[in-house]
Write a protein that binds this DNA or RNA. Structure first.
Length: 426
RNA sequence: GGAGAGAUGGCUGAGCGGACGAAAGCGACCGCCUGCUAAGCGGUUGUGGGGACUUAAAUCCUCACCCCGGGUUCGAAUCCCGGUCUCUCCGCCA
């Protein structure tokens, strides 16, 4: 969330930022109203509490010296009752204030192009060229089915549409991908591996920004008030929720693999064929905790760490700087990595690398001390996929398919595939 | 799932209705002293909200916080109720 003091002092900037993100600025007015009411109420009740504290102190002294304090006690009984009433009121107002505050999106960084739609996105660079084919490349669902890598029909028996049953070498290729990616991040890019839980509680979801706004985009377990994570960003960022880190330890780099769950309500029918949009998928995530002054350098490095995955796989990709209108709720700046897939002839988003500045850190209360005795400050958090598996799987099948129906395994994955170099057509 | 024990500041640990934002020790910081990495002496040392003042910082006033949420009371770290987590035992289980 934003700093309430900042919002009060820079209402116009915040309003413009919300509009640039293509969101409704009514949330700001709600905040300002709630803020006003809450602050008035708290000032009033604090004064009553101050009175109660001083008189209670007097009562204590009177009792010790044997004086009669009945009158004061009677008087304070009334004051206390009034405080009780007002506290209930203040609590409601504070909840409203908090809810409003949590509904205000992060502000875009100044380097982000202001634009209301995706036409403002900027292709920063491209790596590799889409392969030229001397035959008509097939879409991945055909390749996967022919080679026995995915059983789409039986997958839907289990979870319904959008749930994938990988089989045989398809399943093995999934394992190869995330194992190799994590090894790349940990062995050459300086990340520490974590394997987090797949369910997370409400506090975590508020911390990273999924709640309160996106409750119904997630799978929920109402009996336990837990949520299936939409990304490992959630548990990994929340590793340090409510912590004060030692500034000397920053930046901290964590990486981990998880299942990701997305309801994708309302998305049916749009680009959903095959693996392009599924309810459950695997992803390797990179998360960073950095000082404010270094976070934008760290974002560049993080993005490059994601790019290296695609480079080593030999998949052409481009890096897209998202404009304000295309950015997510919590992000200040985002680069998308888009992998080329020859069969569907699309650039597929396989990674989103973002700097959240202290938006998440404030929500999750993740701080650091520069030195002993220094004031705690909020860290900047960043994350990016490194990378999402299904669409990478798509890009591999479609880009590496051969005229005879076989698919070549990218070299870096072969050690993870038991040495298999080609998935042969049956 | 059942029974019991516990949760206090950066850490160890006391307090079990009023003088407690919290003893003591450790650590850290500042100063002094000592002719040399040590010791000694004095001082400082939590976080967050609201407000005043200020360009800002500093400062000041005030409230809250001894796991979380309620309650009792003029007054709660302390008493009561509910929850979470940790440990021990039993049960169940991949």
């Amino acid at each position: 969330m934003l700093d309430p003091k900042y919002i009060r002092a820079n209402t116009d900037i915040v309003r413009q930022g919300i509009k640039n993100k293509r969101m409704d600025d009514a949330v700001l007015d709600e905040f300002l109203g709630a803020d006003d009411l809450w602050r008035n109420a708290i000032t009033e009740v604090d004064a009553l509490k101050a009175l109660r504290n001083t008189v209670s102190e007097q009562i204590s002294q009177m009792k010790r010296s044997g004086e009669d304090a009945t009158a004061e006690i009677t008087r304070m009984r009334e004051v206390s009752n009034r405080i009780k009433e007002m506290d209930a009121e203040v609590r409601l107002l504070e909840e409203r204030f908090q809810r409003a505050l949590l509904m205000i999106p992060n502000m875009p960084h100044e380097s982000v192009p202001a634009c209301q739609d995706e036409s403002g996105n900027v292709i920063i660079r491209q790596w590799g060229e889409p392969r030229a084919f001397d035959f008509t490349p097939l879409p991945h669902w055909e390749i996967a089915t022919r080679l026995g890598l995915i059983d789409f029909e039986r997958g839907t028996k289990i979870g319904g549409s959008g749930f994938i049953l990988f089989t045989g070498l398809g399943a093995k290729l999934q394992r190869a991908l995330f194992n190799w990616m994590i090894d790349l991040h940990t062995e050459t890019q300086g990340y520490t591996e974590v394997l987090p839980p797949t369910l997370a509680n409400r506090d975590c979801m508020i911390g990273t920004g999924q709640l309160p706004k996106f409750e119904f985009d997630m799978y929920r377990m109402p009996d336990d008030d837990l949520f299936l994570i939409p990304t490992a960003e959630v548990p990994i960022t929340n590793v340090y929720r409510e912590d004060i880190l030692d500034g000397a330890e920053l930046p901290i780099y964590l990486t981990g693999h998880s299942k990701c769950f997305r309801r994708e309500a309302g998305a049916a029918g749009k680009d959903t064929r095959g693996l392009l949009r599924v309810h459950e998928f695997d992803k390797v995530e990179m998360v960073k905790f950095a000082t404010p002054e270094s976070s934008y350098d760290e974002l560049e490095k993080l993005t490059q760490n994601g790019e290296e995955v695609l480079q080593q796989l030999g998949i052409p990709y481009r890096v897209k700087l998202l404009c304000t209108g295309d950015m997510s709720f919590s992000s200040a700046k985002t680069y998308d990595l888009e992998a080329w897939a020859s069969g569907v002839e699309q650039w597929l988003e396989v990674s989103s690398c973002s700097n959240f500045e202290f938006y998440q850190a404030r929500r999750a209360n993740i701080r650091f001390r520069r030195e002993n005795g220094g004031k705690p400050e909020f860290v900047h958090t960043l994350n990016g996929s490194g990378v999402a598996l299904p669409r990478t799987f798509v890009a591999i099948l479609e880009n590496y398919q051969q005229a005879d129906g076989s698919v070549i395994i990218p070299e870096v994955l072969r050690p993870y595939m038991g040495g298999i170099e080609v998935i042969e057509a049956k």
